[in-house]
Write a protein that binds this DNA or RNA. Structure first.
Length: 272
DNA sequence: ACGAATGTTGCGGG
DNA sequence: ACCCGCAACATTCG
C-alpha cells in the first residue's frame, strides 16, 4: 500500500526496463473494466494503440508513463502492483489491466483489492490542480511549510494526509515524521511553532529520502516487480510499534484513531 | 467463526 | 473550511 517512496521505487524499477516499442493492444484479463478511470475500453484503445512510452516519472502517488503524445497514469491505491513479467496463472485473476508491446513484452497491473486506477490524458493540468507541493522539490522549504501551516486550522495529521496540501505522504511516513519532530498528530496546524515546523519539514524530507534509498517499506503486501520487497520497515520508529518502547524515551507507543486512520505515537514525546 | 482492520481516495452531510 | 462516516474490495488476524 504505497506512498511516495514506494511509488518512486516502482518508477525506478520501470524506467530502465519498460518497453519503448509501440503499444500493440490492451486487455483486462479479469475483465474489471472499472480500472479504466476516465473512458471506455474503446476510448483507451483509440488513445493508446500505436503510441510509445518515452519515460516514466512520478507526481505525488501517481506513476506517469510519458508517451510520445499524452500520458498514461497509474495509481496503485492500496494493493496495486506494476509487473513486467507475467504473473503465475493463479495470480492472473488479479490482473485488471495489461498492455502489450510490439516487441512481445507486456506490462501487467495486478491489484487484489481493485482500488487502483489507470488514467489517460493529453495533458497533466488536472493533476497539477488536484495535487499540492512535491515534498522532495525545492519548493518545499521550512518557510513554505510554516507559512502554510499557519494558513490552515486543521489537525496536523489529516492536513498532511491531504494530497492537495503536500503530495505523496501517507499514513506510515506521517506517523514517522510527526514522531521525529515531536508533534502530536492532533495538534492544530496553526498552533505549531516555527521551530517545530522547521523540524517537521526536515523530518519529512529526510525520512522520504531514506525510505527511497531502501526501496520503500514492505509490511504486508507491497512489493515492486514480481517479488522485491523494500527494506525500510526495519527503520520504522513508531508505525506498527504499538506497545513497543519509544526509541527516544522508552514510553510505550500507543495507537489511536485520528481522521479514521490508525495513528501511532509517543504520548510523552508528542505532547498535545 | 466472524467482525475488524489494512499503508488510499472521494463523496455527501452537518 | 473542516470533520466525520462510509464506500469501493479482498484477505488476514484475533
Amino acid at each position: 500500500m504505497p506512498e511516495l517512496p514506494e511509488v518512486q521505487t516502482v518508477v525506478n524499477y520501470l524506467q530502465p526496463s519498460i518497453s519503448r516499442e509501440n503499444i500493440q493492444s490492451l486487455e483486462s484479463p479479469n475483465r474489471y473494466y472499472a480500472v479504466l478511470e476516465n473512458g471506455s475500453p474503446l476510448d483507451y484503445n483509440n488513445f493508446l494503440i500505436g503510441k510509445k512510452i518515452k519515460s516514466v516519472s512520478r507526481r505525488g502517488k501517481y506513476i506517469i508513463l510519458n508517451l510520445n503524445s499524452g500520458y498514461l497514469l497509474i495509481h496503485l491505491r492500496m494493493t496495486g502492483k506494476v509487473l513486467l513479467e507475467k504473473p503465475d496463472p493463479e495470480n492472473m485473476k488479479y490482473v485488471s489491466f495489461q498492455l502489450n508491446f510490439s516487441d512481445d513484452s507486456s506490462l501487467f497491473f495486478h491489484d487484489v483489492r481493485k482500488f487502483g486506477r489507470i488514467y489517460m490524458s493529453k495533458k497533466l493540468d488536472w493533476l497539477e490542480n488536484k495535487l499540492g507541493v512535491e515534498p522532495l522539490s525545492n519548493e518545499f522549504t521550512p518557510n513554505w511549510l510554516y507559512k502554510h501551516l499557519k494558513y490552515h486550522k486543521r489537525m496536523i495529521k489529516p492536513l498532511l494526509l491531504d494530497q492537495k496540501f503536500i503530495a505523496g505522504l501517507g499514513n506510515i511516513y506521517i506517523d514517522e515524521s510527526l514522531w521525529e519532530s515531536c508533534i502530536h498528530p492532533r495538534t492544530q496546524s496553526n498552533n505549531i511553532s516555527q521551530n517545530r515546523s522547521n523540524q517537521l519539514s526536515c523530518s519529512i524530507i529526510n525520512i522520504l529520502r531514506k525510505a527511497i534509498s531502501y526501496n520503500g517499506t514492505t509490511i504486508i503486501n507491497y512489493s515492486y516487480g514480481i517479488n522485491n520487497s523494500g527494506n525500510f520497515s526495519d527503520k520504522l520508529h513508531v508505525f506498527g510499534k504499538t506497545n513497543f518502547p519509544c526509541p527516544r524515551c522508552n514510553t510505550l507507543i500507543v495507537k489511536n484513531f485520528v481522521a479514521q486512520r490508525g495513528t501511532h505515537f509517543c504520548k510523552k514525546c508528542q505532547k498535545y
